[in-house]
Computed example of a mutant assay.
Amino acid sequence: MDDQPTPDPTMTRIVEAVQLGQSGAGPQARELLTSLWDEIGPTGDALHRCTLAHYLADLQDAAEAELVWDERALAAVADLTDDRAQHYHHTLQVQGFLPSLHLNLADVHRRLGHAGPAREHLDTARSLVAQLPADQYGDLVRAGIQHVDQALAAGSTHRLDSHPAAAG
């Protein structure tokens, strides 16, 4: 079976904007993704909404804005089916998205000083991470859970060095 995603012009635009952000052009990437969100709309394709919101959260300057996008990503995944995800790429499963989405919510709640919701999302991420394979993605999420757990235990509200925006 082919390991390349099925052509999807919207996903291509999302990926291109994400790559732009990862190359250090965060404000431009944020502008592109925000404009694309306006095109997709809050009831558009769930894969597009989830993916876009997940990455757009990382491009926010304020934790409050990041929380809004992380919550949108989690809401969108509730509308996503394995069939839709696998239409884009045969390896995708909705359950594989959940640990990362909950991890992001745990981290942003931690940074906002919301220890209770941070612990709840961290516990959920921890309970779901066993479903991830022992690969680079799974290892990244597992390490993220450990980092957020340690920061939460220490009472830290600072952005972690492992946060995607810290690299940009």
Rank of each mutant, 00 (worst) to 15 (best):
L59T: 09
A57G: 14
G26V: 11
H89G: 09
A29H: 07
P42C: 12
L132G: 05
E39G: 13
L112Y: 03
T124A: 08
R111Q: 12
I40R: 06
A78N: 10
L92N: 08
H48I: 02
Q93N: 07
R49P: 04
P42V: 13
W37Q: 10
L122F: 00
P117N: 10
G21I: 00
E66V: 12
L47F: 11
E71I: 08
A106R: 00
R126F: 08
G41P: 02
P99S: 00
D38E: 14
T124D: 13
T43D: 15
L92C: 07
L98F: 12
R119S: 07
P42T: 13
V129P: 02
D83S: 11
R30W: 07
I40Q: 02
R110M: 00
L47A: 13
E71V: 13
P27E: 01
L59I: 02
R119F: 01
E120M: 11
L32S: 14
A63P: 02
G44R: 02
G26T: 14
A76N: 09
D82R: 11
E64T: 15
V129T: 11
V94Q: 03
G113R: 04
A57S: 06
L122I: 07
D107I: 00
L103S: 03
D61L: 11
D82Y: 12
P133T: 15
